[in-house]
């Protein structure tokens, strides 16, 4: 217990110096280092002068923030390789494309059979007609910055949002769209 108390004091001291370790979230980020999902979200309590922070359902502490004290770099663009046969499951790929915690492609792209699609990205209905190689589609989802440094498409592979198998499933789904 004493050690924990001393550590808490050290943490306070660190926060006071307004500098950050090169590999840690900055001192003005609000998170609970002991929780399984560290990120906290603000909760406004009516008729109170205190702001509460509650656990958020995603841990976002590993990526750079907007803080002036954040010394962590953006992961650089990665050129991916697609080895062996594609071996993707189009049905699983479709599910991943709709899930907000996975690809959530539908937020930006139109896909067949779904209402309220996004229009920020290109319409992906009938994607097969472009006859793009699997390797190219894989790279576009893995890290589109390789083709266009100003892309708004998240680097799903480089940032660990999707696993390699999930990327293969998405490629199989897109290549199946007639």
């Amino acid at each position: 217990m004493r050690t924990a108390g001393t550590l808490a004091m050290l943490a306070l001291l660190l926060a006071g110096t307004a500098s950050a370790r090169a590999d840690a979230p900055p001192p003005d980020a609000v998170f609970d280092p002991g929780a399984p999902l560290k990120t906290l979200a603000p909760k406004v309590v009516v008729n109170s002068g205190k702001l509460e922070w509650v656990p958020f359902h995603r841990d976002l502490t590993s990526w750079p923030t907007l803080s002036h004290h954040d010394k962590r770099p953006t992961p650089r663009p990665v050129r991916a390789t697609l080895n062996g046969p594609l071996d993707g499951d189009a049905a699983r790929g479709r599910e991943l494309a709709m899930r907000p915690d996975k690809g959530y492609c539908i937020a930006c792209h139109a896909l067949p059979g779904e209402e309220w699609p996004g229009t920020v990205g290109v319409n992906l209905a009938g994607y097969q007609q472009h006859r793009n190689a699997d390797e190219l589609v894989f790279q576009q989802i893995f890290d589109a910055r390789v083709f266009n440094p100003n892309t708004v498409m998240p680097p799903y592979g480089t940032f660990g949002i999707l696993t390699e198998q999930e990327l293969r499933d998405l490629v199989a789904y897109l290549q199946s769209l007639e």
């Binding site: 979230p25 980020a29 979200a41 995603r58 976002l60 907007l66 803080s67």
Partner: peptide, 17 residues
């Protein structure tokens, strides 16, 4: 906005905000 775009939020009153 930060949470919606999968970014760790900062304290209100932080220099960046």
């Amino acid at each position: 906005c930060n949470l919606d775009t999968r970014t760790q939020p900062l304290r209100p009153g932080s220099g960046a905000y």
